[in-house]
Design a protein around this nucleic acid. Structure first.
Lengths: 194, 194
DNA sequence: GCCCGGTAGTTAGCGTTGCTAGCATTAGCA
DNA sequence: TGCTAATGCTAGCAACGCTAACTACCGGGC
């Protein structure tokens, strides 16, 4: 069985090679540059090899997106951990979210605009990385929610953060005021929390 | 010169025929169905005719998006006009925004995710429909802003509304709770306004 | 040690995409 | 009536996602 193990190891390694190459290529030249041909030459294999690992180009983006949600979770968790008081968590986590988006443009794109199939609720199971990232924000929000419904409030904050990122990215907001917007948003959420 | 007038009228009519066909086709079958070939057969002209009016497919989407911003402005204006008190405008306008997005899926897509080139600030002039739509929301927000900076607050609300629409649309939020989210958002913005 | 089956990986190609060069045809003015 | 210019078409290019069909090779059975 050792031989089968080695094969599976190699398969996994190549799968990771594909997603990592796709990601770095996207980060460097944008997702439009990530074509099956370009990606295959970049990994020094022929095109059909991609399809041994993924059903379609979209599946590759989805794999990258999932990886991104894992990293986002880590970033939010670290921000929460480093907060001096629970009430500060929202501000820290919000900033971490914003920084993550700014520092991983293409990755964020894969996570939030490029992958249509990563759903939340519904019948089919939600991918755990998605749940975990959301849960981190929820914890931060819960500390200042007061009488407000935590789930709803978290969704609103989540949406507001995403909206800010996306509109800012597309030049739909005044440049140079990102920090002010983020601060104002956090103030609205914190309300009169100590 | 009457002949030249007629020609220009015809050109304009065909230009509108293109954008309207693109829009209805997108609304019916999604933007993926709007290819240059499909669109050209739909308007009963050959492909190159499209390029006599627009530089690229993206330009067509942009034209549709601009039209959409005009209609959005109208919708927000009407919502504001029908508000019983100025303090109610935010809620009405927010609902109008949400309804607009729900009722014009493809159009909203063209406006907010499909058109990358419609910028706000910066050196080049911002398209007026964009300014006007934003201004309507700004008026509504101003009525409850209090000591908060109106521009920043408007941008935050604008972003939150967009984020809610987009995440909801992609199944990233709990289905069936859109109204609650919207209400909670408005409450945060209104604060303790009478 | 030799053959044989399954896997790995390739080449070549299909249908479709956005976009364009270059040719007809028609309309308007002299 | 004949010339010019605009109008609109056919045909085709390069690149796209994806797949069929073939070769080479590795590993286990006699």
């Amino acid at each position: 069985m050792a031989i089968e193990d080695r094969r599976q190891r190699e398969r996994l390694a190549r799968r990771r090679l594909i997603t990592e190459t796709a990601r770095t290529l996207a980060e460097r030249e944008g997702w439009n540059a990530v074509t099956t041909r370009r990606l295959s030459t970049e990994i020094e294999y022929s095109q059909p090899v991609l399809y041994k690992h993924f059903g379609s180009m979209e599946d590759i983006v989805e794999a990258v997106a999932l990886e991104g949600f894992g990293e986002l979770t880590e970033a939010l968790r670290a921000a929460r951990r480093d907060s001096p008081t629970p009430a500060d968590q929202v501000a820290r986590v919000a900033a971490a979210f914003s920084d993550f988006a700014a520092g991983n443009t293409a990755l964020y794109d894969a996570m939030f605009t490029r992958s249509t199939r990563l759903h939340f609720g519904g019948t089919d199971e939600t991918p755990t990385p998605l749940i975990e990232a959301f849960a981190e924000l929820r914890e931060a929000v819960a500390a200042v929610a007061g009488t407000r419904d935590v789930d709803t409030l978290t969704e609103v904050v989540w949406a507001a953060l995403h909206g800010l990122v996306e509109l800012d990215r597309n030049g739909r907001l005044r440049p140079g005021y990102a920090a002010e917007r983020l601060q104002l948003l956090v103030e609205q959420i914190r309300g009169s929390t100590p």
